[in-house]
Design a protein around this nucleic acid. Sequence first.
DNA 1: TATAAATACAACCATTTGGTTGTGCAAGTT
DNA 2: AACTTGCACAACCAAATGGTTGTATTTATA
Lengths: 106, 106
Amino acid sequence: MIERRDVYQAIADPIRRMIIQKLSGGALNIGQIVEDSGITRQGIAKHLKVLNECGMITLTQKGREQFCEARLDQLDEVVDWVNQSRKLWGQRFEKLDKFLAGTKKL
Amino acid sequence: MIERRDVYQAIADPIRRMIIQKLSGGALNIGQIVEDSGITRQGIAKHLKVLNECGMITLTQKGREQFCEARLDQLDEVVDWVNQSRKLWGQRFEKLDKFLAGTKKL
DNA sequence: TATAAATACAACCATTTGGTTGTGCAAGTT
DNA sequence: AACTTGCACAACCAAATGGTTGTATTTATA
Protein backbone atom coordinates (compact mmCIF):
# COMPACT_ATOMS: atom_id res chain seq x y z
CA MET A 1 0.00 0.00 0.00
CA ILE A 2 2.88 2.29 -0.78
CA GLU A 3 2.00 5.24 -2.92
CA ARG A 4 2.94 3.79 -6.27
CA ARG A 5 3.63 6.26 -9.07
CA ASP A 6 4.17 4.41 -12.32
CA VAL A 7 2.64 4.26 -15.78
CA TYR A 8 0.33 1.41 -14.82
CA GLN A 9 -1.09 3.57 -12.04
CA ALA A 10 -1.33 6.51 -14.43
CA ILE A 11 -3.60 4.69 -16.87
CA ALA A 12 -5.60 2.82 -14.23
CA ASP A 13 -8.14 5.61 -13.88
CA PRO A 14 -10.65 6.29 -16.71
CA ILE A 15 -10.47 10.05 -16.23
CA ARG A 16 -6.69 9.96 -16.49
CA ARG A 17 -6.98 7.89 -19.69
CA MET A 18 -9.39 10.50 -21.01
CA ILE A 19 -6.89 13.25 -20.19
CA ILE A 20 -4.11 11.37 -22.00
CA GLN A 21 -6.33 10.89 -25.05
CA LYS A 22 -7.19 14.60 -25.08
CA LEU A 23 -3.53 15.54 -24.80
CA SER A 24 -2.63 13.12 -27.59
CA GLY A 25 -4.25 15.62 -29.94
CA GLY A 26 -1.86 18.31 -28.74
CA ALA A 27 -1.01 20.41 -25.68
CA LEU A 28 -3.87 21.94 -23.69
CA ASN A 29 -4.25 24.16 -20.66
CA ILE A 30 -6.10 22.98 -17.58
CA GLY A 31 -9.35 24.75 -18.41
CA GLN A 32 -9.55 22.95 -21.73
CA ILE A 33 -8.99 19.64 -20.02
CA VAL A 34 -11.73 20.37 -17.50
CA GLU A 35 -14.26 20.99 -20.34
CA ASP A 36 -16.81 18.15 -20.55
CA SER A 37 -14.80 16.13 -18.06
CA GLY A 38 -17.72 15.96 -15.65
CA ILE A 39 -15.62 16.76 -12.61
CA THR A 40 -14.34 19.95 -10.98
CA ARG A 41 -11.15 21.76 -11.87
CA GLN A 42 -9.71 20.70 -8.53
CA GLY A 43 -10.46 17.08 -9.29
CA ILE A 44 -8.69 17.39 -12.63
CA ALA A 45 -5.76 19.10 -10.91
CA LYS A 46 -5.31 16.08 -8.67
CA HIS A 47 -5.27 13.74 -11.65
CA LEU A 48 -2.75 15.98 -13.38
CA LYS A 49 -0.58 15.83 -10.28
CA VAL A 50 -0.60 12.04 -10.47
CA LEU A 51 0.11 12.05 -14.21
CA ASN A 52 2.96 14.46 -13.66
CA GLU A 53 4.48 12.37 -10.89
CA CYS A 54 4.24 9.34 -13.18
CA GLY A 55 6.10 11.21 -15.91
CA MET A 56 3.13 10.93 -18.25
CA ILE A 57 2.82 14.69 -18.78
CA THR A 58 5.03 17.75 -18.72
CA LEU A 59 3.74 21.10 -17.46
CA THR A 60 4.82 24.47 -18.81
CA GLN A 61 3.85 27.80 -17.30
CA LYS A 62 2.90 30.35 -19.94
CA GLY A 63 1.68 33.59 -18.44
CA ARG A 64 -1.20 32.68 -16.18
CA GLU A 65 -1.87 29.47 -18.06
CA GLN A 66 -0.36 26.07 -17.47
CA PHE A 67 0.15 24.01 -20.57
CA CYS A 68 0.08 20.22 -20.39
CA GLU A 69 1.76 17.97 -22.90
CA ALA A 70 1.55 14.18 -23.00
CA ARG A 71 4.67 12.00 -22.78
CA LEU A 72 3.40 9.02 -24.70
CA ASP A 73 6.79 7.31 -24.80
CA GLN A 74 6.14 6.33 -21.19
CA LEU A 75 3.49 3.93 -22.48
CA ASP A 76 6.20 1.80 -24.08
CA GLU A 77 6.79 0.15 -20.73
CA VAL A 78 3.22 -1.13 -20.67
CA VAL A 79 3.35 -2.48 -24.21
CA ASP A 80 6.71 -4.10 -23.53
CA TRP A 81 5.32 -5.83 -20.46
CA VAL A 82 2.32 -7.11 -22.37
CA ASN A 83 4.55 -8.42 -25.16
CA GLN A 84 6.80 -10.16 -22.67
CA SER A 85 3.79 -11.91 -21.12
CA ARG A 86 2.58 -12.94 -24.55
CA LYS A 87 6.02 -14.30 -25.41
CA LEU A 88 6.07 -16.44 -22.28
CA TRP A 89 2.58 -17.61 -23.13
CA GLY A 90 3.71 -18.63 -26.59
CA GLN A 91 6.64 -20.57 -25.15
CA ARG A 92 4.72 -22.27 -22.35
CA PHE A 93 4.63 -25.66 -24.06
CA GLU A 94 8.21 -25.59 -25.33
CA LYS A 95 9.63 -27.29 -22.29
CA LEU A 96 7.09 -30.08 -22.65
CA ASP A 97 7.80 -30.34 -26.37
CA LYS A 98 11.52 -30.58 -25.74
CA PHE A 99 10.92 -33.22 -23.13
CA LEU A 100 8.77 -35.24 -25.51
CA ALA A 101 11.34 -34.85 -28.28
CA GLY A 102 13.98 -36.08 -25.84
CA THR A 103 12.02 -39.18 -24.88
CA LYS A 104 11.48 -39.97 -28.54
CA LYS A 105 15.22 -40.01 -29.13
CA LEU A 106 15.72 -42.50 -26.34
CA MET B 1 -15.08 6.10 -6.85
CA ILE B 2 -17.08 3.22 -8.15
CA GLU B 3 -15.42 -0.17 -7.79
CA ARG B 4 -13.87 -0.40 -11.23
CA ARG B 5 -13.09 -3.86 -12.54
CA ASP B 6 -11.28 -3.65 -15.85
CA VAL B 7 -7.98 -4.72 -17.37
CA TYR B 8 -6.32 -1.43 -16.49
CA GLN B 9 -7.20 -2.00 -12.85
CA ALA B 10 -6.00 -5.60 -13.12
CA ILE B 11 -2.47 -4.63 -14.18
CA ALA B 12 -2.22 -1.56 -11.94
CA ASP B 13 -0.82 -3.57 -9.02
CA PRO B 14 2.73 -4.99 -9.17
CA ILE B 15 1.74 -8.21 -7.40
CA ARG B 16 -1.06 -8.77 -9.88
CA ARG B 17 1.38 -8.20 -12.73
CA MET B 18 3.70 -10.73 -11.12
CA ILE B 19 0.81 -13.22 -10.94
CA ILE B 20 -0.01 -12.68 -14.60
CA GLN B 21 3.65 -13.20 -15.56
CA LYS B 22 3.79 -16.41 -13.53
CA LEU B 23 0.61 -17.69 -15.14
CA SER B 24 1.95 -16.80 -18.59
CA GLY B 25 4.24 -19.78 -18.16
CA GLY B 26 1.25 -22.08 -17.72
CA ALA B 27 -1.58 -22.79 -15.27
CA LEU B 28 -0.79 -22.96 -11.54
CA ASN B 29 -2.66 -23.62 -8.32
CA ILE B 30 -2.89 -21.00 -5.60
CA GLY B 31 -0.11 -22.47 -3.48
CA GLN B 32 2.33 -22.23 -6.37
CA ILE B 33 1.39 -18.60 -6.91
CA VAL B 34 1.92 -17.82 -3.24
CA GLU B 35 5.51 -19.20 -3.39
CA ASP B 36 8.08 -16.38 -3.23
CA SER B 37 5.31 -13.81 -3.55
CA GLY B 38 6.19 -12.26 -0.21
CA ILE B 39 2.59 -11.99 0.95
CA THR B 40 0.11 -14.38 2.58
CA ARG B 41 -2.16 -16.82 0.80
CA GLN B 42 -5.12 -14.67 1.78
CA GLY B 43 -3.49 -11.64 0.25
CA ILE B 44 -2.93 -13.55 -2.98
CA ALA B 45 -6.53 -14.79 -2.86
CA LYS B 46 -7.76 -11.20 -2.85
CA HIS B 47 -5.65 -10.35 -5.88
CA LEU B 48 -6.94 -13.46 -7.65
CA LYS B 49 -10.48 -12.34 -6.90
CA VAL B 50 -9.77 -9.01 -8.56
CA LEU B 51 -8.08 -10.66 -11.55
CA ASN B 52 -11.03 -13.03 -11.91
CA GLU B 53 -13.56 -10.21 -11.79
CA CYS B 54 -11.53 -8.40 -14.46
CA GLY B 55 -11.63 -11.49 -16.66
CA MET B 56 -7.85 -11.78 -16.59
CA ILE B 57 -7.87 -15.35 -15.22
CA THR B 58 -10.12 -18.40 -15.27
CA LEU B 59 -10.38 -20.69 -12.24
CA THR B 60 -10.93 -24.44 -12.43
CA GLN B 61 -11.64 -26.64 -9.44
CA LYS B 62 -9.70 -29.91 -9.59
CA GLY B 63 -10.20 -31.99 -6.48
CA ARG B 64 -9.19 -29.79 -3.60
CA GLU B 65 -6.97 -27.67 -5.80
CA GLN B 66 -7.93 -24.56 -7.72
CA PHE B 67 -6.13 -24.07 -11.00
CA CYS B 68 -5.59 -20.59 -12.36
CA GLU B 69 -5.06 -19.84 -16.03
CA ALA B 70 -4.24 -16.44 -17.54
CA ARG B 71 -6.50 -14.86 -20.17
CA LEU B 72 -3.89 -12.77 -21.95
CA ASP B 73 -6.25 -11.80 -24.76
CA GLN B 74 -7.77 -9.32 -22.31
CA LEU B 75 -4.54 -7.31 -22.59
CA ASP B 76 -5.40 -6.48 -26.20
CA GLU B 77 -7.64 -3.70 -24.93
CA VAL B 78 -4.68 -1.99 -23.28
CA VAL B 79 -2.45 -2.26 -26.34
CA ASP B 80 -5.27 -1.03 -28.56
CA TRP B 81 -5.76 1.99 -26.33
CA VAL B 82 -2.06 2.81 -26.37
CA ASN B 83 -1.93 2.50 -30.15
CA GLN B 84 -4.94 4.76 -30.53
CA SER B 85 -3.27 7.42 -28.39
CA ARG B 86 -0.09 7.12 -30.44
CA LYS B 87 -2.06 7.45 -33.65
CA LEU B 88 -3.67 10.67 -32.42
CA TRP B 89 -0.23 11.88 -31.38
CA GLY B 90 1.11 11.19 -34.86
CA GLN B 91 -1.74 13.10 -36.46
CA ARG B 92 -1.66 16.07 -34.11
CA PHE B 93 0.01 18.39 -36.64
CA GLU B 94 -1.94 17.23 -39.68
CA LYS B 95 -4.57 19.91 -39.31
CA LEU B 96 -1.89 22.54 -39.19
CA ASP B 97 -0.07 20.99 -42.14
CA LYS B 98 -3.27 20.96 -44.19
CA PHE B 99 -3.89 24.55 -43.30
CA LEU B 100 -0.40 25.53 -44.34
CA ALA B 101 -0.70 23.58 -47.58
CA GLY B 102 -3.97 25.39 -48.23
CA THR B 103 -2.46 28.82 -47.72
CA LYS B 104 0.40 27.90 -50.06
CA LYS B 105 -2.05 27.13 -52.85
CA LEU B 106 -3.69 30.57 -52.49
C1' DT C 1 -7.92 50.54 -10.80
C1' DA C 2 -11.38 47.25 -10.51
C1' DT C 3 -12.61 42.93 -12.32
C1' DA C 4 -12.30 38.57 -14.48
C1' DA C 5 -9.58 34.47 -15.56
C1' DA C 6 -6.50 30.70 -14.50
C1' DT C 7 -4.68 28.42 -11.17
C1' DA C 8 -2.79 26.83 -6.49
C1' DC C 9 -3.38 25.18 -1.80
C1' DA C 10 -5.68 23.19 2.21
C1' DA C 11 -9.12 20.79 4.65
C1' DC C 12 -12.47 17.49 4.58
C1' DC C 13 -14.97 13.21 3.34
C1' DA C 14 -16.51 8.42 1.85
C1' DT C 15 -14.90 4.52 -0.43
C1' DT C 16 -11.44 1.46 -2.12
C1' DT C 17 -7.25 -0.87 -1.68
C1' DG C 18 -4.06 -4.04 0.02
C1' DG C 19 -2.72 -6.22 3.57
C1' DT C 20 -3.23 -8.97 8.09
C1' DT C 21 -5.08 -12.72 11.54
C1' DG C 22 -8.27 -16.14 12.86
C1' DT C 23 -11.66 -19.68 11.94
C1' DG C 24 -13.78 -23.34 9.48
C1' DC C 25 -14.31 -26.91 6.05
C1' DA C 26 -13.69 -30.23 2.36
C1' DA C 27 -10.48 -33.37 0.08
C1' DG C 28 -6.63 -36.40 0.18
C1' DT C 29 -3.13 -39.26 3.01
C1' DT C 30 -1.22 -42.18 6.59
C1' DA D 1 -9.89 -42.36 12.36
C1' DA D 2 -6.58 -38.84 12.67
C1' DC D 3 -3.89 -35.69 10.24
C1' DT D 4 -2.42 -32.69 6.55
C1' DT D 5 -3.21 -29.95 2.59
C1' DG D 6 -5.58 -26.43 -0.05
C1' DC D 7 -8.65 -23.25 0.21
C1' DA D 8 -12.85 -20.02 1.49
C1' DC D 9 -14.84 -16.60 4.48
C1' DA D 10 -15.05 -12.88 7.87
C1' DA D 11 -13.35 -9.19 10.59
C1' DC D 12 -10.20 -5.81 11.10
C1' DC D 13 -6.81 -2.17 9.91
C1' DA D 14 -3.95 1.77 7.88
C1' DA D 15 -3.24 4.10 3.87
C1' DA D 16 -4.40 5.58 -0.74
C1' DT D 17 -7.88 7.21 -3.94
C1' DG D 18 -11.00 10.28 -5.93
C1' DG D 19 -13.80 13.49 -5.20
C1' DT D 20 -15.73 17.94 -2.91
C1' DT D 21 -15.78 23.06 -1.04
C1' DG D 22 -13.58 27.16 0.33
C1' DT D 23 -9.91 30.54 0.16
C1' DA D 24 -5.94 32.90 -1.69
C1' DT D 25 -2.77 34.45 -5.40
C1' DT D 26 -1.22 35.90 -9.72
C1' DT D 27 -2.01 37.55 -14.44
C1' DA D 28 -4.48 39.75 -17.94
C1' DT D 29 -8.18 42.86 -19.41
C1' DA D 30 -12.03 46.66 -19.50
